[in-house]
Design a protein around this nucleic acid. Structure first.
Lengths: 207, 207
DNA sequence: CGATAAACGGACCGCTTGGTCAGGTTTGAT
DNA sequence: ATCAAACCTGACCAAGCGGTCCGTTTATCG
């Protein structure tokens, strides 16, 4: 998918370097956002710059590979929660897990927030995430735990919002996102009779 | 402050170009974020690249001048609202005005979201904004219109959050931010008895 | 209408970036 | 031990960046 070499059918040093590269890139992107240079990633991995391009045809492809991994992880977590006993707690657990990813990873924020940066596979993964988010949301909605009209896409989008709210505080108050997560969750679960004035986004308009 | 020439005591073509430059830069930064090149700004303004640096000692200074202008505008709007009849509507009006700025201006989002990008004067303006936000919030809080514990800084931070929530939809649904603004506002005004689990940010930790 | 100082333009500089490539090194099957 | 194929490296390239500089244009004033 994202790399050049199909799978394990490669030389041992190649698979080792690929791992080092993915780990180093994940860390670098998380700290510095999408703008970290290939040179820095190579250095962190302890390999030459050329090696990066042997494993990933371009910087975008490397970035996509890492974003995809994180999205898939979150999707797995969410899938596991779809059968939890308490749908409300499950939904909140999902939100918490998602926000934590955003908080830890600058590149993730940037990629999700700007559709123009998104690789096709990343877009597909986001769709999958919205799907499972909708499952979680629907279960909670059916029991009256979230107000009517809230969709899975809403929930997914709000993760990024919570992160951004706390972003300016990140250095001074690394846990401040918890405050805003609760506040937003209260907004989702509020029983104000009132409808939200603007309709929910259609599931596909993310692309 | 932000420019080199103090005020109107300059040649007519200079003041005209300064205006053109500020307008072009505001537009360019709004559309493209802080990374738009000086070259493009100069081109939009119809002047040479050298002229940019005659008026602004560096790109950062130009950016700061524009951010400062927008912040001051918002602060003025907020000040006007502090004496409005309905404190709840005033607070919501403030939030709306703020979010609209964020939605329209990519550079504004980027600068506010990352303290490391902030010029000293911009930081000071943000402090002023938090102050007036606190006035608005306090008035609403005193009448029980917002839940206890919500501060002006919370409100200011949430603007960026609402914008980010709607950001992926911006192209397809330019007004989607209204949905999330209402949702967040419901979170602010919810009467859940419950305390938020994480304390409010101290006013200064923004810096 | 000169004259002069201010302002302008754009070639230019040093630096960084994503990406390439020739040539040396490792691996692993034989 | 041998050797070809796979792999790695870092010098290299073109493009784009912020910022400088100086020959030229232009506003202003006596």
């Amino acid at each position: 998918m994202a790399g050049k070499t199909p799978a394990g059918s490669a030389r041992s040093d190649a698979v080792r370097n690929r791992r080092l590269l993915l780990d180093a890139a994940a860390e670098a992107f998380a700290e510095g956002g999408v703008e970290v240079s290939i040179g820095e990633i190579a250095q962190r991995a302890g390999v030459g710059k050329g090696t990066v391009f042997r494993h990933f045809v371009s910087k975008d492809e490397l970035l996509a590979a890492i974003m995809l991994g994180m999205l898939d992880e979150l999707i797995d977590t969410a899938s596991g929660l779809t059968t939890a006993d308490d749908p409300g707690a499950a939904l909140k657990g999902f939100l918490t897990a998602g926000v934590q990813i955003f908080v830890r990873d600058r590149a993730f924020c940037e990629v999700i927030g700007r559709p123009s940066l998104q690789h096709a596979e990343v877009r597909a993964a986001i769709d999958r995430l919205c799907d499972v988010a909708e499952q979680l949301t629907a279960r909670a909605r059916d029991r009256g735990l979230v107000r009517p009209g809230i969709t899975g896409t809403d929930v997914a989008l709000l993760m990024a919002g919570v992160q951004q709210t706390a972003a300016p505080l990140l250095a001074a108050e690394p846990q401040a996102w918890r405050r805003y997560l609760d506040l937003v969750f209260d907004g989702i679960t509020a029983s104000t009779g009132r409808e939200l004035p603007y309709p929910p986004p259609s599931h596909l308009s993310l692309a």
